[in-house]
């Protein structure tokens, strides 16, 4: 094979998720406008912007969480590894196994710690026997940095853990089904700084195996955890770039205004 093959202009080779002219309407409201964005594999992409800018709406498009919202209409092309996420043939349950999600408020099931993590693998029939299931649960808790803290009380209720532990339990639950992409919607906003630091450290480790998209209101957090940052404003993607560039030399005046606290 020739090495002289010309590479595509964008780095779409590395793109795990691509959005092309994605629009979202909630009834009459045009919530997301003509968004083109590549989410690269094994990177953390932070979506930032003021409330109502469309960042969470975009996030929810990726695993079709918006399907559950009445009057929500998504147009344009959104692909995961080249597959059209909105293709009618796509099994949404399978899609959400490939694209996991962690929410703002930790939301463990009212079940034991073990069952919280085992829930997804059971549904998707990922384990042939109890031994395999145990293995998945333990590995997931380990990767979520929670195992040491909970290994002696796996049968206790997940809701009995501290907020930070609950959030890491939710991350363990998300990774138990071996997703490719993890979406995080302000995963640390309910956590104290130490729990936040643990989750951020975890995000950094998870990047090795997963592609992560995080919505955050904390610009410092976006700066700390992400490699790419995308800035949304009034439903439009204003600027996307390497996090370092966005925070040292943003090109768009709106980005500059927002991240330096000069907005509106």
């Amino acid at each position: 094979m020739s090495l002289a093959l010309s590479l595509p202009e964008t780095d779409s080779r590395l793109a795990k998720v691509t959005a092309r002219d994605v629009n979202v309407h909630y009834a009459e409201k045009h919530a997301l406008k003509h968004v083109d964005l590549d989410i690269r594999s094994n990177e953390v992409t932070a979506l930032i912007g003021p409330s109502g800018c469309g960042k969470s709406t975009f996030l929810r498009c990726v695993n079709r969480m918006n399907d559950m919202i009445e009057n929500c209409r998504v147009t344009g092309l959104l692909t995961l590894d080249g597959d059209d996420v909105y293709d009618r043939k796509i099994d949404v349950v399978q899609l959400r196994a490939r694209v996991g999600m962690v929410f703002q408020k930790p939301n463990p099931f009212p079940k034991s710690i073990y069952d919280n993590v085992a829930y997804g693998p059971r549904i998707h029939g990922m384990a042939r026997d109890q031994g395999e299931l145990d293995e998945i649960v333990m590995t997931s808790l380990e990767r979520a940095g929670l195992l040491a803290e909970v290994k002696d009380r796996l049968l206790e209720a997940g809701t009995g853990l501290s907020g930070g532990q609950q959030q890491r339990l939710c991350i363990a639950r998300a990774i138990a089904v071996a997703p490719e992409v993890i979406l995080m919607d302000e995963p640390c906003s309910a956590l104290d700084p130490i729990a936040t630091a643990k989750v951020e450290e975890l995000i950094d480790e998870l990047r090795e195996n997963f592609t992560i998209v995080i919505v955050t209101h904390s610009m410092q957090q976006a700066a700390r955890v992400s490699q790419r940052t995308a800035f949304f404003h009034l439903g439009e993607l204003v600027e996307v770039g390497d996090t370092e560039q966005i925070f040292t030399n943003p090109q768009h005046p709106l980005t500059q205004g927002y991240i330096t606290g000069r907005f509106g």
Binding site: Q220, A223, F247, T248, N249, T255, Q256, I259, T260
Partner: peptide, 9 residues
């Protein structure tokens, strides 16, 4: 202040 962008510069 944890300045960024033009403020940092």
């Amino acid at each position: 202040r944890q300045p960024v962008a033009s403020d940092l510069r």
